[in-house]
Design a protein around this nucleic acid. Structure first.
Length: 230
DNA sequence: CCAAAGATGCGCT
DNA sequence: GCGCATCTTTGGG
């Protein structure tokens, strides 16, 4: 499991590095799991972040040590974040894909489907179970009440490196940031090959121009993150 | 009160 | 597959 030292790094670098990692949550003896395919960085110093709105009890987790879970409720669902280096900085987990292995067998996906049915009560398609920040939390059974302000716990909730690495990433604007709130910052990362399962794919949005609203970055040696136009 | 780091269904192409 | 209206429910001004 990734420990507090792992999370003690710059939020943008952390958001990028989390793509491909696996979140596991144990619910009644079953480890529900999802591979992260999309994440966003938020800094206290910019206006898109919750931390920039001020330090309140419900946002306290953002100011706690790196690796602290920050969950909040908005628009009908809970969202999962992890604090990063620097008080008020964090990464939002935006979407994932159900992940299976020996520890999280296929039958656990059916638990996730039971957790997160379509509004009509029918089964949600497997690949859409975690295609959104609140959908991911619902499928994995993660709630504000249970996890906000707490650290990861190897017995119940953890993030793990299973050796999966994206070949390429889309680095794009964050979603849902109103105009004037630093919406131009390219603080969102999506696994290029799995982008069709993410929240919204800039490659399918014709109004999004490469080099402005998004860019393609190779992982590995040439993957210079971070600084882009202000 | 109401905006908020969303999700969905519907009508159109 | 897209854009847009409409539903969501709570924390905080």
């Amino acid at each position: 499991m990734l420990d507090a030292d792992y999370f003690d790094r710059d939020a943008l670098a952390l958001a990028r590095d989390l793509i491909g990692k696996v979140i596991r949550h144990r619910v009644g003896g079953s480890w529900l799991a999802a591979r992260v395919i999309e994440a966003e960085a938020y800094y206290r110093r910019e206006k898109g972040s919750h931390a920039s709105l001020g330090r309140t009890p419900s946002r306290e987790a953002l100011f706690m040590p790196p690796g602290t879970i920050y969950m909040y409720y908005s628009r009908g669902g809970d969202s999962l974040n992890v604090s990063a280096r620097g008080a008020g900085n964090a990464v939002l987990i935006k979407s994932g894909l159900p992940f299976t292995d020996r520890r999280s067998p296929e039958k656990n996906v059916r638990v996730m489907q039971a957790n997160n049915p379509l509004p009509g009560g029918r089964e949600r398609p497997r690949d859409k179970l975690c295609s959104g920040q609140t959908l991911l939390c619902r499928s994995l059974g993660l709630s504000v009440a249970q996890w906000n302000g707490r650290p990861f716990d190897p017995r119940r909730l953890l993030i793990e490196d299973v050796g999966q690495r994206p070949d390429r990433l889309i680095q794009a604007r964050r979603l849902g940031i109103p105009e004037g709130r630093d919406e131009h910052l390219l603080y969102r990362f999506v696994d290029f090959d799995l982008a069709r399962y993410a929240t919204a794919n800039p490659l399918t949005r014709r109004a999004w121009r490469e080099g402005i609203e998004y860019r393609i970055v190779a992982t590995g040696r040439s993957a210079r993150d971070g600084e882009q136009q202000k």
